[in-house]
Design a binder for these strands. Sequence first.
DNA 1: CACCATGTTCCTTG
DNA 2: CCAAGGAACATGGT
Length: 259
Amino acid sequence: MRRAKVLGATSVRELSRRLRGAKFVSVTRRGKYLLFTLRLSGRTKPLMLIGHLGMTGRMYLARADAALPKHAAVVLQLSRDKFIFEDTRYFGRFTLNLEGIERLGPEPLSAEFTVDAFAKALSRSAQPIKVKLLDQSLVAGVGNIYASEALFRARVAPTVPARRLTLPQIKRLWRAIRDVLRQAIEGGSTVALSYDGAKSKDRLFYFGQSAEAPEYYEERLRVYDRAGKPCVRCRTPIEQFVQAARSTYYCPTCQSKTR
DNA sequence: CACCATGTTCCTTG
DNA sequence: CCAAGGAACATGGT
């Protein structure tokens, strides 16, 4: 254990005590959280752990004799390998405290995420729609990049107060969120990812192949990080501004406030 | 040196 | 109790 902060409310001592002898059984996902299920011999009740990669985290197995990375946040000694949670900025989580997943909204790709439920949730907020999309209790898993991407594809302006979206806009956005995430998952699974960070600029997967193959970049991200570049739809330069301390990218021509 | 960055949470104010 | 805004967290790249 290198950084206690990522353990949240759990102490180092408590985590070591409770994990000793436990066996990893499965890993699933909820929003941006990873859910680890572990089992202790003689116990029927499984032990649950949640992980979050923050912006710079990575979790992986390494050989027992491998050197620890500079920013190792958590290291678990397994029977053969080492489990390493490396996190440069230590914004991530690896904890027995499950509060993080309690307030999450529906999974965007599940049947629970309906247009009706989405419309209802939006009707209660005056926040700009881009900011509202980052609220994980509205729908789980949309981050800053995909919030801009979904709004661009839905042709909805980022500044519209959530409760002012028209029904057609809500329907388009609902679809766009699902499409964008499905495509991102698809892309992530089909492109070879380099985890050494040596070739890519910043270890972001969307940069993984972009220097050599711009078509990947264009295919995946149509507005994010494209300030000043022509809109892929109408050629108007993409604009960037800050909302809730996060960058928003949008096309002033394609993305409407009213329709 | 200044500013920016994929995320979440805490604190304050209304 | 809720909504909203801003700061904080820590490090590295430009």
